[in-house]
């Protein structure tokens, strides 16, 4: 039985999403099953009209322009591409907590990019975290 990792994501900042993309890639290489829960303030990042053009940074050691330029120079994929690759390589369920949806302005699945598999409640996150071998909160 595959090991399971559960991640709670509460940030829409591009540096944290990119870090999460790297972690998802490692999980995919290890064939881990991943449940990713989009919580609180993370819903914004997955909105169809925002995902491609995020500029917010949580860590101010670089501007978003410098950060994105360094990723390009290192041939590091955009965070959405990381997530897509991980989904192609292993089981990654991405669920949007309905509260995060409301905070972002919509809890309708069709307003979010295709990476989002469904809308959920917090109980599912708690259940998943209870079953997981690895738990991360970002």
């Amino acid at each position: 039985m595959a090991k399971k990792m559960t991640i709670g994501l509460s940030s829409s900042c591009i540096d944290k999403l990119t870090g999460l993309g790297v972690i998802l890639s490692g999980a995919a290489a290890e064939d881990l099953e991943v449940d990713l829960f989009i919580l609180v303030n993370a819903g914004h990042a997955f909105l169809k009209n925002k995902a491609e053009n995020l500029k917010e940074m949580s860590d101010q050691v670089q501007t978003s322009e410098e950060f994105l330029k360094s990723l390009e120079q290192l041939k590091t994929p955009h965070w959405i591409e990381f997530f897509e690759m991980a989904k192609d390589m292993t089981t990654v369920n991405i669920l949007l907590c309905s509260l995060a949806g409301k905070i972002a302005g919509s809890d309708a699945k069709e307003d979010y990019i295709d990476l989002v598999d469904d809308i959920c409640g917090i109980g599912e996150y708690i259940d998943s975290a209870g079953e997981a071998d690895i738990n991360l909160f970002i």
Binding site: V22, S25, A29, K75, T76, M85, M89
Partner: peptide, 14 residues
């Protein structure tokens, strides 16, 4: 060559 972590690992896995 030319890709940074995790590029090589993903390429090998695929």
């Amino acid at each position: 060559r030319g890709t940074a972590c995790p590029g090589p690992l993903l390429a090998v896995k695929q």
